[in-house]
Amino acid sequence: MKEIRVHGRGGQGVVTASEIIAISAFKDGFFSQAFPSFGVERTGAPIEAFARIDTNFIRTREQIYNPDIVIILDASLLGSEAVKSGVNNNTKILINTTLNPQEIIKKYPNLKNKQNSLLTIDATGIALKILGKNLANTVILGALAKQTEIITLKGLKQAISEKFSEKNQEIVKKNLKAVSIAYDK
């Protein structure tokens, strides 16, 4: 079983990101599960959401305490202990940032022994350019597919199309383009 924890702030689409991960994995042929930590988002408040992927039906309902992958939508949360909680040497940490891993460690010394675990993508930059607003939650999943291979780009695109099926098709198209750009970075 692979366990993924998403951190961000209310309004950044943290819960949606975890749901799209679960849908993507399901499209890839796996069992999956996604759920929010607290289920209510207050704009700006730190939020966590969870996703699990396995070859069997996932029965457990406990939150994720030892993630295989941590996704951080808002780099300002890197100083908080919550994002590091339960992270071990094998945990990959994917961060939405313009900085590279060395610069991140300089800025957030609490991550100093995690240098080899840090993965980065300027998802906000891509979101601003393609979506026209700072909504990086889908974009960062393109990098998740490329850099961790936990989901496939194909599954991700299917998941986005399905999740946003009730939205304007233009929005779906832009999101698909944005995740492809993040994937190719």
Partner: peptide
Amino acid sequence: IDGFILTHSYEP
């Protein structure tokens, strides 16, 4: 059905 745990979770 358990609030949030089932109402707000995704699974097959």
